[in-house]
Amino acid sequence: MTTAIEVKNINKQFVLRHTRSIKEAIVWLAKGRKGDLSEKFHALHDVSLEIDQGEAVALLGFNGSGKSTLLKHISGVMVPDNGTVRTRGRVAGLIEVGAGFHHDLSGRDNVYLNGAILGMTEEQIKERFDSIVEFAEIGKFIDTEVKFYSSGMYLRLAFSVAVHTDPEVFLVDEILAVGDEPFQRKCIAKIQELAAEGKTLVVVSHDLDLVSRICDRGILLDRGNVTFDGPIEQAVATLRA
């Protein structure tokens, strides 16, 4: 098996700053550094994992356990304090669909902009444009500014662009919590299709039944520690216990 994601002993501490102002920082220095300007929060403790190509892995844990933080390290948005993260091929984060969308641009402009943000070339976007619009069921509204879209249309278009980037690794974070019923069903169907095609998936979701259907492996995070890594049924059972 070829490794798609390799996470080796990563640690992450967040510095919670109490000031973002030079003025206050200087006052603090002048007053003889009374009190702490920052606190540290250990969000990931010595996390290691290896995910093979074609695996569908669920990342489970309570709120604040560090799931999103781990995904951000895999996508490269964050870098660890120590340890290493390595990935093979292109990684696409469906961490928040529509992050690169701009309300004052048309759907068409947004497809191009977001496609490029997610790493597609001009030719790839041109080639897949019709397919993107079709999947999103946007039709003739593609040249309307997205601020006039319903939230369903907006999400469909954003999701459609993201799945059309055709990456090797998909990171899916709670996107299934947004949007209406039909949209969610469509997303889930698409994600299952990707899993069946042998894409590498890392999925975060509170819907344990859903992840049991999509994933075969589950990783449990508890306050930044990996507490379980194994078959999904066991992971879900451990979490529910």
């Binding site: 895999i74 964050m78 870098v79 993260v85 390595r86 990935t87 093979r88 090797e168």
Partner: peptide, 24 residues
């Protein structure tokens, strides 16, 4: 299944301004 021929690489380590040229 899509087997990548690419090497394992560290994500989030950019190439600076040269990278901007590549993503023009």
């Amino acid at each position: 299944m899509s087997v990548s021929t690419e090497e394992l690489a560290r994500p989030g380590v950019g190439g600076g301004l040269a990278e901007v040229f590549r993503t023009r």
